[in-house]
């Protein structure tokens, strides 16, 4: 009997190579060929990991079709197999893989749609934090607003695409008919956040990405508004109201002091 180490090495090599013979020493009770038996393990490995990817990237699967998705998943699994039993973390890098995978070069937006789906699963498992209660801002005197520094929710992800990635994602997770998507219509920014139990995904209005990026660096509200106003059509009041309603923040501090210390 070969050592346990050698047995597992040859078993693993044969699992990963569908053309390889069944390793020596692996038998069926009847003495007949054990190929179909060994193939159960081969199939379990790849199909269970493809299931994980399909669960993580449902919009991508819908966009390319199940058969193509599973064949593509196999290429990805061979290139980037999981290195941990924590499969909730498996599938990182799938977006970059799609960007560079020649057979999908005609669908250049796939990578950015996959980035939204990856952010969704990160947000789902992220640490919990209570979203900021907008009522706390009622205690802030108007002249102190400019000096507020908002703390972004720990589950928040921001994505920028030169394609209408949010619209494509949305159409493909709603199980609706895919509306005509104008790839020349310009890019979309997306916010992904899980303020409570549900992951929320929204397209961001003009300037909001710059606004949130600036806030995420711990800068003041006036500095963030200034950065965002470089984009035409940025509406500070609308953005602040909608982001608060969405639960994008979990706290704030004030340069003026005093207004936020009673939570």
């Amino acid at each position: 009997m070969p050592s346990l180490a050698d047995t597992q090495l040859s078993f693993t090599r044969a699992l990963r190579d569908p053309a390889a013979p069944v390793p020596a020493g692996i038998i069926a009770w009847s003495g007949n060929a054990p190929k179909r038996r060994f193939d159960v393990y081969r199939n379990n490995v790849y199909s269970s990991l493809a299931d994980v990817l399909a669960g993580r990237y449902p919009a991508i699967q819908r966009l390319v079709g199940e058969e193509f998705f599973r064949a593509m998943a196999r290429v990805f699994i061979d290139a980037k197999p999981p290195t941990s039993p924590m499969l909730m973390q498996y599938g990182e890098g799938f977006a970059a893989f799609l960007d560079a995978f020649p057979p999908v070069a005609e669908l250049p937006y796939l990578g950015d749609v996959a980035r939204i789906e990856w952010a969704w699963s990160r947000a789902y498992h992220a640490g919990d934090a209570q979203p900021l209660d907008p009522a706390r801002l009622h205690a802030v005197v108007p002249e102190a607003f400019a000096g507020l520094r908002f703390v972004l929710h720990p589950s928040l992800h921001l994505l920028t695409s030169r394609f209408p990635a949010f619209s494509i994602w949305h159409a493909n997770v709603e199980d609706a008919a895919m509306p005509p998507i104008d790839l020349g219509a310009g890019g979309e920014d997306t916010i992904v956040v899980r303020p409570r139990l549900s992951v929320e995904v929204r397209a961001l209005p003009a300037g909001a990405r710059q606004f949130l990026d600036t806030l995420s660096r711990g800068e003041r509200l006036d500095a963030a508004a200034e950065a965002a106003s470089a984009t035409d059509g940025f509406d500070l009041e609308l953005n602040l109201r909608e982001l608060l309603r969405l639960g994008a923040f979990c706290d704030f501090t004030s340069d003026e002091g005093g207004a936020d210390d009673n939570n």
Binding site: L15, V45, S48, P82, P85
Partner: peptide, 15 residues
């Protein structure tokens, strides 16, 4: 279910 660094995600048999 793990060989070297790869997690194979199946319950594989032992001699």
């Amino acid at each position: 279910s793990t060989h070297e660094s790869m997690y194979l995600n199946d319950l594989l048999p032992v001699p």
